[in-house]
Amino acid sequence: MSRADVLVDADWAEAHLNEPGTVFVEVDEDVSAYDGGHIAGAVRLDWTQELQQPEARDVIDRDAFSALLSKKGISNDDTVVLYGGNNNWFAAYAYWQFKLYGHDKVKLLDGGRKKWELDGRELVKDVPERPATQYQAKDADLSIRAFRDEVVASIGSKNLVDVRSPDEFSGKIKAPAHLPQEQSQRAGHVPSAINIPWSKAAADDGTFRSDEELAALYGEQGFDDSRPTIAYCRIGERSSHTWFVLHELLGKTDVKNYDGSWAEYGSLVGVPIQKDV
């Protein structure tokens, strides 16, 4: 696995927009972004309504993933290029979910929507029509997904990487600062977690730092290469971004995304929480 296998830049994307066997997919939480303009030929995935079970707050199951991709006209052999807003947070989550269900050929567009817009590249409003397929998802690969009990059992032994902002990590604020702060859950972090914000892995325009910069970043922050790793954030999308960096770009082994993240952990009764403020 190398960077070229999992990441494409905007120039590559522009040159492959209409290539058969390549499907561009915009993934957003705010689906109005797609309506206002998207990369030509791109289909939309709605993170909240399509990739999640809204009430259970869990990822959709294997059958639902198969049905979703069939409906979107994506086949098992297609190369899927994911991109989105919010510095590719939800596109990275979708990438992790595609890998969870065994889709081999999936890539992220470096910088996502923001880089595309800041470059002044073309966005269109035409919605493509793709014939339905018979997509067959594989069993979920749980080697890349962590659950709450494993997180509690990993305190003090695995790399627990909290990728939220320093103020969320310390407990000063409970949610990213573009959101109102009233939440029922407790503030703070999992004891023994190290705080390496997802944003340190990306430039202002949303593109990933170089492999050399990324390797140095995690090394400096106390990441122990000899230990397995679990990344978490608040709802699992920023930690998908970091999972992508650690597992896909840097090629580290045994890296899991804890997609329940702080929304779950910070609401549990009886688990240890460390608060620094």
Binding site: S165, H178, P197
Partner: peptide, 27 residues
């Protein structure tokens, strides 16, 4: 618009509205 903390660390980012407006909730 990106909101950076006192150490320069990224905290949040939004895109301005049709009227150029942005809003963050902070401490």
């Amino acid at each position: 618009v990106r909101l950076l903390g006192s150490t320069g660390e990224f905290t949040a980012e939004v895109q301005t509205s049709a009227t150029g407006y942005f809003r963050f909730y902070a401490a």
